[in-house]
Design a protein around this nucleic acid. Structure first.
Lengths: 226, 226
DNA sequence: GTCTATATTTCGATAGAC
DNA sequence: GTCTATCGAAATATAGAC
């Protein structure tokens, strides 16, 4: 699977053609700071509401340097999206290695819930991009995203054919898993409000994870052995 | 249930204290045009990315008149949110009247899927607000939202106590239903991309609806009688 | 109630010294 | 590579004629 390069547009090689390790390392550290701050700001305010000044303040990098590193607000946004997409794909590797739906889909739900818990901003940036037209996804990840989804659907359909689970529609099952796990990141503020203005505790988070997993696995006829 | 008044801040009575029917009707028509246009623009661009100029163009109302009717961009946004909240609450009435989980939760899923299909912009505006901090919800609907959710959880817990469904956690079941139905509105663009750049057809939409409903009802041990 | 014209603010982006 | 200062564009909001 190949990804169109939309990241930092400045080559990591210098004008002589050699890579200067010192500079490359410094660039990497600075880029990481910018990435984390940008992800937070884009998640909290959306692309339109985000400002380069906010990203500069949060990252501790002067505003003109953001342009120096990423060229423009839009290119920075695309780089952030690409990072998120990569992490998102990795979460599904558990499905490919599993031999049973309980293991594969149950593990995928665990992985997605873990991402929602540890990287809520990443999930929000993605959700925001999709809601507002997904034009960057269309431009950059469309083919890779389509092929990746098709492959995962094939895995599920094979399990159905092998009689390891009930004949549910694989595509809409996948959508339900995405929705119900990412909900805990994207709608985290709503969940907090409904939890007496307190973020979910460790115990509550485990209960939520188990609830989603049990309900889905039972819904597809692939109960875990408790 | 009472809602804090955050709508149009201009009284519908004139300075003499009497309501002039002609003016009130005209005001209502104009407000409706603004509401629909604002909902579309806020859904497509978020609060930060939305501009009063876009709303003016789409509604056919001159930009200064938007301020005349709603005071400010933020007050207009709050009024739009309140409208959405009301519609959202109505969809759950089917749960209160039902005597079985299959009827109540199945009907609720149908109603939410129907809203996602017919009012995708409304769902997106709400999702956007929640993702970006839900501060307006905190200010305006927090108590009503909390009490409404608690009441629905009680209904589900009663069904569990009566042995009409498996002992699932009612709160996280509700979240899963919200997430998996609103996904079809909020992530509509993503679903279209994965559907060969074609919006779901009537048949596909019915399949999706049935998939969600069957999976959830089976997951809570309340299968429909097919 | 409506609209033209404009005031005021804020943001993305850049020039240029260091 | 970094930062101060600033430009030019675009946004919210309003003044004031009709």
């Amino acid at each position: 699977m190949n990804f169109p390069r939309v990241g930092p547009m400045i080559d990591e090689s210098n004008s002589t053609g050699k890579v200067t390790g010192r500079r490359a390392a410094l660039r990497h550290v600075t880029e990481e700071k910018i990435f984390i701050a940008a992800e937070t700001v884009f998640a909290q305010a959306g692309f339109g509401g985000a400002t380069m000044q906010l990203i500069a303040n949060l990252s501790g990098i002067a505003k003109p340097n953001l342009h120096y590193y990423f060229g423009s607000k839009e290119l920075l946004y695309r780089a952030v999206l690409q990072r998120i997409f990569r992490m998102w794909l990795r979460a599904a590797e558990v499905m490919d290695d599993a031999s049973t739906p309980a293991e594969g889909i149950g593990g995928y739900i665990d992985a997605k819930m873990e991402i929602s818990r540890l990287n809520p901003n990443a999930s929000k940036v993605w959700a925001n991009e999709v809601m507002h037209g997904a034009s960057m996804i269309q431009d950059c990840f469309k083919d890779a995203f389509f092929e990746w989804t098709s492959a995962r659907i094939s895995v599920i359909e094979r399990w159905v054919a092998e009689g390891k689970m009930l004949p549910v529609n694989a595509r809409y099952l996948l959508y339900l898993v995405w929705a119900s796990t990412q909900h805990y990141a994207d709608f985290g503020h709503q969940i907090t409000i409904l939890n007496h203005d307190t973020p979910l505790s460790d115990v509550e988070w485990e209960t939520a994870k188990r609830s989603v997993k049990e309900l889905v696995l039972r819904g597809i006829g692939a109960e875990l052995n408790y």
